[in-house]
Structure formats: C-alpha cells, structure tokens
Design a protein around this nucleic acid. Sequence first.
DNA 1: GAATCCTTCTTGAAATTTAAACAATTGGGG
DNA 2: CCCCAATTGTTTAAATTTCAAGAAGGATTC
Lengths: 168, 168
Amino acid sequence: MDAAPATEDTRWLTDDEQRIWRAYVHASTLLEDHLDRQLQRDAGMPHIYYGLLVGLGEADGRRLRMTELAMKAKITRSRLSHAIARLEKNGWVRREDCPSDKRGQFAVLTDEGYEVLQRTAPGHVRAVRQAVFELLTPEQQKSLGEIMQIVAEGLQPSDAGADLPWLR
Amino acid sequence: MDAAPATEDTRWLTDDEQRIWRAYVHASTLLEDHLDRQLQRDAGMPHIYYGLLVGLGEADGRRLRMTELAMKAKITRSRLSHAIARLEKNGWVRREDCPSDKRGQFAVLTDEGYEVLQRTAPGHVRAVRQAVFELLTPEQQKSLGEIMQIVAEGLQPSDAGADLPWLR
DNA sequence: GAATCCTTCTTGAAATTTAAACAATTGGGG
DNA sequence: CCCCAATTGTTTAAATTTCAAGAAGGATTC
C-alpha cells in the first residue's frame, strides 16, 4: 500500500479526459448492475455465471476444461471453482474427470443447464439490445467494438503473432 | 427465475453485434480487474472505495450525505454503509450527524484520507492512462465518451428537463 | 395532532469474490 | 529413474456485495 513516485509531476487527466473516464466508469457500473439484476431475476444467476453457461454451450461437447473456461471468461481458476460448485448445485453443470490428465476436470453443461440457457437467452439479448445497441448509431457501435478490442488487447496481449518473434 | 416470452422469434445479435458486445464485456472485465488490483496494491482498497474518497475529496467541506455519495458512486445505500464502515476503520473517513435532519449522516474525508488520496492518485491516473488513453486516438476517446454518456443516460435518465414536463 | 406514508441509513445473513496456501500430477533435465 | 519446477484445480478464511428487513425521523393528510 505504498504510493507512486510523486517526484516527477503527475500528468493529470485533462477535463475532457476526466469526462470521458467518468462517463465510462458510470456507464459500465450501471450496465453491469442492470444486467446482473436482469439475469438474477429471470435466470437466477449473475451475469458472469450466465457467461459461463454460454461458454460451455458453445464448446464442443458442451464441455471445457476448467482452465480454458476460466480464460474464456476472464476470471481466476479459484473464482471459477466456486462458481462451478454453485452451478453444479443448481444442476446446470456437472464435472467430469479428464482421461488424459488426472489433474484435469471438465465442466459440462447439463441438459437442464442447456434448457435454462435457451429459456433465458432471449430476455438477456433483449436487455443488451435495449441498453446498448438500440441507443447507438452503426458508426458508434463499430467504434465501440474497435475501442474495446484495443483496450482488451492492451491488458491481455493475445499471442497472435507469437510465432513471429522477430516482429516484436 | 421464469423466462422470457419465446412466443415471438427472438431478434438475436448479428455477428458484428456479438463481436462488439463480447469485446465490451471482456475489456470492461479486464479493466476493472486491473484497476482493482492496482489500487488494492498501491492504496489498500478496491476501485469503488477509491471512488468514494475521490467523491468526498471534491465535495464542499470534503463531506457528503450518505445518499448523495451513494448516488454519485452509483451504488446502493446498503453497500455504501458497509463500505464507509470499512473506510472508517482505516481512519480515512468519519461520520458526522446532520444537524438539520436527525436521520442524516455525513461521510467526511479525514486528513489522513486526504493524504492517502494525494499519495495514490498519481499512480491511479497513470494506470488509467496506460490502459486506456494512451491506446486511443483523440477521435476514439471522444467517441468513447459520447457512447458511454448515452448508455449511462439510458440506464439512469437524468432529470435534465424535468422542469419541462410537457416535453416528455 | 394522530395516522400514515416516505426517506434515510443501518443491520444481519447469505452469496460471491479475493487472496493465499495446498495437494496432486505432469513434464523436463540430468 | 529421480529431482524439481510448473500446471491444474481445490480449499480455507477474510473481504465484499447483495438482499431483505427494520429503526427512526420527517412529511403529508385529514
């Protein structure tokens, strides 16, 4: 809990940058709250848990290794362990041992979990549409995608091009 | 935990919309995690708590009614109560009774809290710069601000124009 | 001024997340 | 084969958030 070097003068945010940053923080907070409530009400789980079911639903055999799922969802393995335990209690996911690696576990979407997904997906898509896409012009949508792609890449550089080390 | 009307065909997200939405979800997740870790490490508190101190620091007399602070930070009063209790233990905030409303409480930034803010703000600003502003063109920054402003307004309509009810 | 509803804030319990530590297994060198 | 570092996933406890309920003061109504 130490501090940052105050030696050199800090380059503060300009007024414009402040407005932009605050708009982002507020909007993302409100949006996440909104979607959490929508899904908690209609599907009985928070947004991140819903994302786990979606991830499994899209995977081959509706199953994924824990680590893969954690990476896909951008959460820690620890957090995933707890989340899957909860979803298992709901009967929406089950675990299976990995044959080729005795340490490994698969998280598998159950039929019941798949039904939950089918039943609740329309409402969630509608919520996202109403909160975001219906309010933005096509240009703004495109811009949002590009911006978020850049930010994500900055925080979690993908290995695209990792086989071309001389380009780095 | 009921579902949404599957009667009418759902209007799913297009491929483009999917990409945009996923980019947003991933980037915002990564960014919030990143800032939480940065502030937890350097300031000993999560991002939202830091925002509370900032809110108080900017207020007249470095104090705000609980409800005002909760609205400014976009969190529930309950969550704020717990958060302020924690910040009080740290000695960074103290509570004071409101003279004009016996139900009311002020959250007041202490000198110690102010110092924490001063000491840690440069590092936080740097983190935000590095993760966002340095990666975006001026046009993208402007666009981001506009988009987030729109989304926030959609989820939490301000009362701008509330005195012109005939316009609604 | 009494009844009633609303607002303000807190509380306690349950759910979730974080952080750190751990067991089990794998894979690579020597 | 043996040693050792890295990987995989879980577990525990502490911190935080959510949810529902409630205490207390204020505001409105009649």
